[in-house]
Amino acid sequence: HNGKLCKLKGIAPLQLGKCNITGWLLGNPECDSLLPARSWSYIVETPNSENGACYPGDLIDYEELREQLSSVSSLERFEIFPKESSWPNHTFNGVTVSCSHRGKSSFYRNLLWLTKKGDSYPKLTNSYVNNKGKEVLVLWGVHHPSSSDEQQSLYSNGNAYVSVASSNYNRRFTPEIAARPKVRDQHGRMNYYWTLLEPGDTIIFEATGNLIAPWYAFALSRGFESGIITSNASMHECNTKCQTPQGAINSNLPFQNIHPVTIGECPKYVRSTKLRMVTGLRNIPSIQYRGLFGAIAGFIEGGWTGMIDGWYGYHHQNEQGSGYAADQKSTQNAINGITNKVNSVIEKMNTQFTAVGKEFNNLEKRMENLNKKVDDGFLDIWTYNAELLVLLENERTLDFHDLNVKNLYEKVKSQLKNNAKEIGNGCFEFYHKCDNECMESVRNGTYDYPKYSEESKLNREKIDGVKLESMGVYQILAIYSTVASSLVLLVSLGAISFWMCSNGSLQCRICI
C-alpha cells in the first residue's frame, strides 16, 4: 500500500475532517465546509473527530445509520420544511452556546429548535410527501429539559409530546424532565432520530412541544462500492481501485494482509504473511546465498510486491572476458508455465471484495464479540484455502523447474562428451581453451567436438587428477538461474548478450 488516501476510480472521497457522521448530518456549525458535499467514492472519518452533536445527546440507531450510509455515493440536500413558512405559530430561531460559531450562539444547520411564540405553543402538524424518486433521509430531535421551569419557559406545556409517523415508522416521544450533570454547559439533553422515507411515502410530524424540527433532508443515491473508513492518512493526487484505512492498494494479487476493511475492488484479506509461490528452483544453499535460486511470486499485497520470474541462460568467462545470454527457448517455456500457473491461482482465488467494518453500540458488546468470532472463522478458512492451494502448486513448480534445468544440462553434456569433466555440482571442467566463438557454439548447439578432442585428450593426460582450476583450465557451469522482474525479464530476452569482463582471468566458464 502507499499510505495515502486516493480517488477511487477517479472519484474523490468525502473527508469529514474534524467532524464525524453525526456532526455532518445534523449540521454542526463547525462542519459548515461539508454542506456543499454532493457525491463521493467513500467517506473518511478520523479516529478522534471532535465535532459531532454540539448540544449533548445521542443519535439513536447511529450504527444502523452508518451502515445505511456505507452504500450511499451521492445525496441532494434540500429544504424539507421551509423555515419561514412551515411554522407560522412558533418561534424557530432557537440557539445555544453549546453550538457556538465564530463566538456567537448558533444551532444545527439542518434542524430548527421550535419554541413557544408569545406565551403559547399551539399543537403543530406538518407533513412531507417524498417526490424525489429515491429514498429521503429525514432527521429530527426531541429536547429533554433539566427542570419543569425550563419546560414551561420554552414550550408552555408541561405534558408535551412529539409524534412522527410514516408508512414504515411510527413513534411517540415524551420529554424526560430530570436533573443531569452539566455537559457542554447544558443540564438538558437532546436525542436525535432518523428514518428513511421511501419514494411516494408521507411523513407526518405532530407536537405540542420539545420538537427539534427537520429543516433540511437528504435524497440518497446508492453506490455499492462506497463505504466509510476511519483513517488518519492524508489525501493525495492519486487514483486506485482499492482503498484501505492504511493506504491505497493497486494490485491484481488475490490476497492482502494490510487491513480487513477495504473499499472498492480489493484482494481478499488473509492473516498469512508467507503466502508465496515459487518460480525458481529448489533451494541450493551456495546459490541461494548469491540470490540466484528460489525466486518467488508473492500473492499477498503487503507481504511480497508483485511476481518475480526466474529465467535460464548461459554465463561464460574466458580470456576475452565474461558474458550472459538467455536461453530463449527454455526461458519462454518457463515463463509460459509460470504465467499459466499464476493465472490459474488468481482465477481460482481472485474475487474482488469490498469489506466494511460493522458498528455496534456499547450495549451490543456481546453481539460485536460474536460477530468478530464469526469473521475470524471465515478469515481462517480463507487463509487455509489460500495456503493449501499455493503449497500444492509450489511442489509442481519445483518439479517443473528441475526438468527444465536438467534438459539444459543434458544438452551441454551431450555436446562436450569427454572434452570436459562433470564435477558433480552442476559444473563441467573443460580440457581445452574455449574462446567466445567456442562458447557461442555450446550455447547454440553447434559445438565442434572433433575440433577440440585432441587438445582435450592431451590435457587429460597431463592433469592426472590435479585440480583443474589450479592448472588454468576452464570450467563450464551447467545450471544457472538469475532473477529478474517481469519487465526486466522481457528486456533481457530482447538482448543477445551483455558482457562482464574479468581482467586477466584465465578461467573459461559457460553457465546455464
Rank of each mutant, 00 (worst) to 15 (best):
235 M>I: 12
236 H>T: 09
237 E>M: 05
239 N>W: 09
242 C>L: 05
243 Q>G: 06
247 G>L: 03
247 G>T: 07
252 N>W: 01
254 P>A: 07
255 F>K: 09
255 F>I: 04
260 P>L: 01
262 T>E: 01
270 V>R: 00
271 R>I: 01
272 S>A: 14
274 K>S: 14
275 L>G: 04
276 R>N: 05
277 M>P: 01
279 T>C: 06
279 T>R: 06
280 G>H: 05
281 L>P: 13
287 I>E: 06
288 Q>L: 02
298 G>E: 10
301 E>R: 04
307 M>S: 00
314 Y>S: 02
314 Y>M: 15
315 H>Q: 13
318 N>L: 05
318 N>F: 02
318 N>M: 07
319 E>A: 14
320 Q>C: 04
321 G>V: 01
321 G>M: 03
334 A>F: 02
336 N>A: 14
338 I>K: 10
342 V>Y: 08
344 S>M: 10
347 E>Y: 02
347 E>L: 05
349 M>I: 15
352 Q>T: 06
353 F>S: 08
356 V>F: 06
358 K>G: 15
361 N>Q: 10
361 N>D: 09
363 L>V: 11
365 K>A: 10
368 E>F: 10
377 G>L: 10
380 D>G: 12
382 W>P: 12
382 W>Q: 06
383 T>W: 11
386 A>T: 10
387 E>D: 11
390 V>T: 13
390 V>H: 03
394 N>S: 01
395 E>I: 02
400 F>W: 14
400 F>I: 11
409 Y>W: 08
418 N>C: 06
420 A>F: 15
423 I>R: 07
424 G>M: 11
428 F>L: 15
430 F>D: 07
431 Y>G: 06
433 K>A: 14
435 D>Y: 13
444 N>I: 15
446 T>S: 15
451 K>S: 14
452 Y>V: 00
454 E>Y: 03
454 E>F: 13
459 N>W: 03
463 I>L: 12
466 V>K: 04
467 K>W: 00
471 M>I: 09
472 G>T: 11
489 L>W: 02
491 V>M: 10
496 I>W: 02
500 M>L: 07
500 M>R: 15
501 C>P: 01
509 R>H: 11
511 C>N: 15
